Simulated assay, not measured.
Amino acid sequence: MKNHLYKNDLPDGLDLGPIVAIDCETMGLHPHRDRLCVVQMSSGDGHAHLVQVAQGQTTAPNLCAMLTDPNVLKLFHFGRFDIAALQNTFGALTAPVYCTKIASRLVRTYTDRHGLKNLLQELLNEDISKQQQSSDWGADTLTKAQIDYAASDVLHLHKLRDKLDVMLAREGRDELAQACFRFLPTRALLDLEGWPETDIFAHA
């Protein structure tokens, strides 16, 4: 396993394949206030590719081409936040997508523990550390601990998707999950446009 760190964009010619796991690190949880700092990706081969985003950066042509490629499925855990952060920074709406948190909520109805750490422990018997989650991702130089943490958030998503897909099919909720995934980029846009806490489908 190797972690590759790039500045500002993915290198020319890098092909991460038809299914790419993606996660983001930001300065906080408010996309309009807290800037995007790192985008980490994996093709599922055990290697991670991290793009460090500069303060004020608004373009990343190679990264955005992959995010918007209709032939590349992007895997997230809580994609709603990451898709919004990427859209807010680069103006690139990520699609098509798959979210392991949504899949978990649809099929693991026997629990309210849907964090990535919980899923990996139960379904893959993998234990990851969340110690660096709240560290300073805007620093000019990332520590090895930060890089390893960022990588750990994407290295297992392919296998996790496989496990969740089996459960979704078994419970007859795979089509419902796909409908949710198709709506997810729109849900992220609603967040950015001012409806983060409003259920626009509610009667009240």
Rank of each mutant, 00 (worst) to 15 (best):
K2L: 15
E25W: 03
A21W: 04
E175N: 15
M1Q: 09
P61Y: 02
G17A: 10
Y6S: 03
Q178K: 10
G13W: 07
T109M: 10
R182T: 10
M66P: 05
L5A: 05
N125Q: 14
R80H: 13
H32Q: 10
E122M: 07
V166S: 06
M41R: 07
V97E: 07
Q52F: 00
D148K: 10
L106G: 01
D148R: 06
A48M: 05
N125H: 13
G46L: 05
Q121P: 00
F78H: 09
Q87G: 09
E197M: 13
T198K: 00
G91D: 11
A150N: 09
E171Y: 10
T94N: 10
Q55S: 07
H4N: 11
R80Y: 12
V97P: 11
Q40I: 08
F81R: 04
L119P: 12
W195L: 01
T59R: 14
T141V: 15
G13E: 10
S134V: 12
H203I: 13
D12G: 09
Q132K: 11
Q55P: 00
Q146G: 07
R173C: 03
L16Y: 03
P96Y: 13
G194K: 02
P11A: 01
L120N: 05
Y149S: 04
I200K: 08
V97C: 14
T26L: 03
D153P: 02
Q146L: 07
D9Q: 02
H47E: 14
K159G: 12
S134P: 00
L14M: 09
F76R: 03
G172R: 04
D112S: 04
V53T: 08
G56V: 12
Y110G: 14
T141F: 08
D199Y: 07
V51P: 01
D191M: 14
L142G: 03
H203T: 12
R187K: 13
Q55M: 00
L50K: 00
T111E: 12
R187F: 08
K163R: 15
L16V: 05
R161S: 12
S42L: 14
L14C: 07
Y110T: 14
Q146V: 06
I22L: 15
